[in-house]
Nucleic acid binder design. Sequence first.
RNA 1: GCCGGUGUGGCGGAAUGGCAGACGCAUGGGACUUAAAAUCCCAAGUUCGAAAGGACGUGUGGGUUCGACCCCCACCACCGGCACCA
Length: 811
Amino acid sequence: MDYLKIEEKWNKIWEETNLYKFDPNKLDKKFYLLEMFSYPSGASLHLGHWWNFGLSDSFGRFKRLQGYNVFQPMGFDAFGLPAENYAIKTGIHPEDSTRHNIELMEKQLRKIGATFNWEYELITCNPDYYKWTQWLFIQLYKKGLAYQKEAPVNYCPSCNTIIANEQVVDGRCERCDSEIIRKNMKQWFFKITDYAEELLSGLDKIDWPEKTKALQRNWIGKSVGAEVDFELENKKGKLTVFTSRADTLYGVTFLVIAPEHKLVKELVTPENKKVVDEYIANSIKKDEITRTSTTLEKTGVFTGSYVINPLTGEKVPVFVADYVISTYATGIVMGVACHDERDFDFAKKYNLKTKQVLTSKDGKEVKMPYCQYGKLVNSEEFNGLTSEEAKVKIVEKLEKLGKGRFKTNYKLRDWSVARQRYWGCPIPIIYCDHCGTVPEDESRLPVKLPHITDYKPEGEGPLGKCDEYMHTTCPKCGRPAIREADTLDTFVCSSFYQLRYPESLHNDKEIFNRDYVNKMLPVDCYVGGVEHATGHLLYSRFITKFLRDIGCLDFDEPFQRLFHQGMILGADGKKMSKRNTSKTADDYVNKFGSDALRLHMMFSLKYADGGIWDDAGIVHMKEFMERVERIVLKWGKLTGNVNNYGAAEKDLDYVLHNAIKEVANGYESFSFNTAVAEYMKLVNAMYKYDQNCEQINAKFAKDVAKNLLILMAPAAPHFTEELWEQLGEKYSIFNQHYPVCDESKIVLDEVEIAVQVNSKIVARMLVPTSADNTTILNIVKQDDKVRSQLDGKEVLKEIVVPKRLVNLIVK
RNA sequence: GCCGGUGUGGCGGAAUGGCAGACGCAUGGGACUUAAAAUCCCAAGUUCGAAAGGACGUGUGGGUUCGACCCCCACCACCGGCACCA
């Protein structure tokens, strides 16, 4: 078989006959399968793309055979730094290079022969798409969820832009590996923190890998505790701390405030000012150099001020120390030297007072610092309570005194969305001298990104240099006004694309139709890498919940099921790239065909784990296909009139129906390797039957051959379609229905059981599958070998595991 | 440090608590052939044994169970994430 020819042939026919067209009117059995769309980077498609798109496509084809109306759209996340950096490197305008790359990638993606619904293609840099990105921004702005504030941001001096927390890896830029600087800048944020609790609790109702849920939980970082107010000693005012260990409140011997905290200035007494200023200057510098080191010794300086413990009335000194983070909770921490590791180190270093307020629950002596829960001591009326009890009782008392309250904190920060770059979605905000900050009028959307030539990033949005873009009129008062020069983080663009896909064709009136989106979503299965766990996957959930709250849709979660593929790696164990693969996907396709490549990928590595690419087996996959071809063509054209259904037929039927069951299980769980193994087992059994039967039951054999083709269709689409035609069957194999497993065929009449006496196997025998436990025991006990083992001894206990094993325990 | 995951032959990898290593690669052998290629078949965890057969085997140590790769406890190694989060 000429694989290249048949691939070309069927790709063409499938396209011309619209075989995979999604029917928007048949939604009762729709299946929305989505693969994370990709950046149109300049490189040509490599094996990793085949791995990602080809294999999830096989899953889609399997669902199609099961009778689902599969919706599997494809598109491009076309804005953003990679596309722009590539453009800067090559000197070609981002728009031109992006369009060119999309064209190139699209052509190659089509070659995979995947059943993508290209007619729904989305490209995020198209005005008819980013119109809705801007619309979304405006809705968030109207609800107060898009806002500007002066905030410390991660600034990459090489890319000349602010980047999100998620894009900082070990204090470095994930793109260019430069050291990140912390800077205070006026920035646009989305208030994702408003949804922290729901983003957390929603995880319980979706079918996602535990790993990913754990990552998000960790990232959201819920911490239940209390706020406690400490009055200043000699002045009016108070310092509020957050603690999850209110049970240790009686043990507070100092307070620590973050160097960047606003109140530091007020706390510093004149005689301490010089030291404190120096310390702050130092720690801010340290921030830039080694922010992430946890082994760093705890340092700090005394401010000169004291506060009063609200319960004990004790005077407590206040320190500035950079082990306290200004952006988490209140930025002030109570120091309990005896019951916190860090506070202990700090107190020891500066010779501060310590006070033990906890002992172990069982009264054993404890070693300092004792950080576990225990029993309270030195805590007045709370003595004797457990930590768990005291955490509640103490805060209740503080509430009565008006000096504290229960409080829950989250590590999650608001989402920084502005980028000082050119190639992104323009922020639809206008600054008017009379009206202030005004969102663009929705009727004037999209705010088009101008085609400019000087797009090099220089710390401020390059759009600022484009007068025609910047100067506009205020949508409120009509007077001249200035536009926002920044563009949006691409994660904004990709936070709702799954909602827009179903209607990308025809709805230019609204972001999507409410009824229709409710029927099409959530996405039934979302496939993509785990690297987006705390980025895209969290943002999409947030935006979905927001759109629900403003009445655009009625569901809570965008992706019902999520599956992460593993990554396919080069010979050096590193991410696949041109450098570490000597052969491209095209090389393999040309030599063995795309079906063989796909089958080999499915079989040789676990989809969930990935691993190092090894092409050694691919030639054998081609041989396997030839093996299939020979037997299928032989059996499919048999004309004998033997109608016997004997032991051989029964055996083969067993293998077939077992395969029907296991192949389905394999696809459902993305265990493609075991699905392919089942094909091989079935083919082996067919050859055996072919050899061992003098006369072949032609009708039966034909049926097995056809079933094999249908089972294999998702894994080798062109190949099976061609054979299907050669058998004279009607176009197309993908209109067939996945065979039904006849359970009765995979139950054997007789089953071998092992008889154990005291856990030692003494005999093996055949018993009817239908026999119940009593019958089996009777048969067993009559057996000579068993009787001799029992030797008249009394049976204490009989265990019968149907179909497998009998165990007699004797005295 | 905390959270999550993984650990099975020379290799990729299978096993609702029930004959561990399916299926395949690499390996060895056989049939067909003048020969080779192609094709088809067989063997194969380790170890002792000529063989029949036995012993040991799923990172380590315990436990539950008639029975554990699988469940529980402790530990080790590797991978991933978070990391001074109060």
